[in-house]
């Protein structure tokens, strides 16, 4: 079968591209659309490095076919900041040293955005369980959880 034409919205911009039927959204983002901020750590939905938001729900882009993206709204790490103004989540990750190698960071930031959009005042336990699908091997999660708490407080206007 030849490639399928996909029309979708990515980070607020209309996008069209061609995808093989079996290609993952992750591969389309990285290889076709050059949006390499979304990372592949496992390709099996176990690490969360490829987290994107589709129509308000976060998911692993490695578990979505690129052709399924048609007609949906997708947010990737490249769409979190507004121009050159960082999102408070990004700012708090920096201030809290919540990244060491930084490879898992895009996935964590997108997942945190999805959390705080839904629950502006999560407990530490809620943060830890929400982010359980995002693996980090460097930080031991401590500073990530604190960054999320700080970002939530800032976004609430605290």
């Amino acid at each position: 079968m030849s490639k399928i034409h996909v029309e979708t919205t990515i980070n607020g911009e209309p996008m069209e591209f061609l995808a093989n039927p079996g290609e993952s959204l992750l591969d389309a983002l990285r290889n076709t659309l050059n949006l390499t901020g979304t990372k592949e750590g496992c390709g099996s939905g176990d690490c969360g490095a490829c987290t994107v938001i589709i129509d308000g729900r976060m998911t692993c882009s490695c578990l979505v076919l690129a052709v399924e993206a048609g007609g949906h709204e997708i947010t990737t790490i490249e769409g979190i900041a507004q121009g050159d103004t960082l999102h408070p989540i990004q700012q708090k990750f920096l201030e809290n040293a919540a990244l060491q190698c930084g490879f898992c960071t895009p996935g964590f930031i997108v997942a945190t955005k999805a959390l705080l959009d839904k629950n502006p005042n999560p407990t530490e336990t809620e943060i830890r369980f929400w982010l359980a699908g995002n693996l980090c091997r460097c930080t031991g999660y401590d500073k990530i959880v604190r960054a999320v708490q700080d970002a939530a407080a800032e976004m609430r206007g605290g």
Binding site: G45, D46, G48, T51, I54, R57, M58, T59, C60, L63, V64, A111, A114, F129, W130, A132, G133, N134
Partner: peptide
């Protein structure tokens, strides 16, 4: 079932 990400699908 899986992570919060997986539950989104």
């Amino acid at each position: 079932i899986g992570s919060k990400q997986v539950q989104g699908r």
